[in-house]
Computed example of a mutant assay.
Amino acid sequence: MDLITALRARGGVAMRRDLLNAGVGAWQLRTAARRGGVVVPYRGVVALAGAPPEFAEAFRYGGVLTCISAAPHYGLWQLHPTTELHLVCGNGLPRDGVVLHRSASLPPLRGRPVAALADVLVHALRCRPPAEALVMVQCAVARGDITVEFLRRNLPGNRNGRARDVLDLVRRRADSLLEPLAAMHFHQAGIAFVQHVELPGVGEVDFVVERFLIVELDGKTHFEPRAIKRDRRRDNTSVAGGFTVLRYFYEDVVHYPEAMVAEVQAAIRAHYSGLRLNK
């Protein structure tokens, strides 16, 4: 087998012994470092130039990527991409600069040093802050790649209580990472809400809070001229129907959630104060 073809089939990086087993000639491997586009980043590791460096690191340490290090390889939502390396390593030996996850329940991806999706999500639920783990799990669940019930069965006992609390916030549907995050912040603040509500003349809105307040989350597509006009008309129809409307952007939900929650709570207080004054 041709070396380049074999490497491409494995995501661009492989162990020398695995390439030999796949039928790559020993002479190709002996001259690998002199071939254009091929590098030998570590002893026993062969890679295409430009291949994911984290693959080579995983092979270097004899592990597979998991948790947030595996998220990009499954196309999972991430809040804060990081260079921190999270690995499952069979021998469990500590390594400088590596966050070690000591066990996996399923085989890794074939031909790539990436843990199975279920293990990636279980590790994230145990390891990462709730918001980071939530968006990863919500992405996979909304795509139909995995179920909350399956993950819950793999998180038994008291030590996994916090992880199961995150699973309680996951919904079957989410159109962006902003939705589960906003829902988490509203839930933690004790704000009553319903998601994905269809309103006559308005269409579907992201949240209805306390039956009078519409909360919409605006991603990148909402800044297109046609989308701006559509949203303003929807807001007008909502207000004419007796609703109050608040809109929040990515930075509000991700970076300043406390301010968003405080504003929603202020709107709720103002609404009920007005009702009392009008009695």
Rank of each mutant, 00 (worst) to 15 (best):
I4V: 13
A6K: 12
R8E: 14
R8L: 14
G12C: 02
V13K: 05
M15S: 10
D18K: 06
L20T: 08
L20D: 01
G23R: 05
V24D: 09
G25M: 06
Q28F: 05
T31R: 15
A33D: 13
R35C: 09
R35E: 11
G36P: 03
G36I: 00
V39M: 11
V40N: 11
Y42N: 00
A47W: 06
G50K: 03
A51I: 05
P52W: 04
F55Y: 15
F55D: 01
F55R: 03
A56R: 00
E57I: 00
A58E: 03
R60M: 02
I68Y: 00
A71K: 07
P72I: 01
Y74F: 15
H80F: 10
P81K: 03
T82L: 06
E84R: 15
E84S: 12
L87H: 07
V88N: 07
V88T: 08
G90F: 07
N91M: 03
N91G: 04
G92N: 04
L93M: 13
R95I: 09
G97P: 05
G97F: 07
H101K: 08
R102K: 12
S105R: 15
P108H: 09
R112G: 03
V114I: 15
A116P: 01
A116Q: 08
H123Y: 05
A124V: 00
R126K: 04
C127S: 14
C127P: 00
E132K: 01
A133M: 02
L134M: 02
I146L: 13
I146R: 01
T147K: 06
T147A: 06
V148G: 10
R152V: 09
L155D: 06
L155G: 06
N158V: 13
R159F: 00
A163M: 02
A163V: 00
R164M: 10
L167Y: 09
R172Q: 13
R173M: 02
D175F: 11
S176Y: 06
L177H: 07
E179R: 03
L181M: 05
A182D: 03
A183D: 02
A183N: 01
F186N: 01
H187D: 12
Q188Y: 11
F193W: 02
F193Y: 15
Q195N: 02
E198I: 13
E204V: 14
F207A: 04
F212K: 12
L213H: 12
V215M: 11
E216S: 13
D218C: 08
G219T: 04
R226G: 12
R226Y: 06
I228L: 12
K229C: 05
K229G: 01
D231T: 10
R232S: 11
R233I: 06
R234G: 01
D235H: 04
T237V: 15
T237A: 15
G241M: 15
G242W: 07
T244K: 08
V245R: 05
R247D: 07
Y248M: 02
P257W: 04
A259I: 04
A262L: 11
V264L: 07
V264T: 12
A267E: 12
A267Q: 12
G274F: 00
L275M: 14
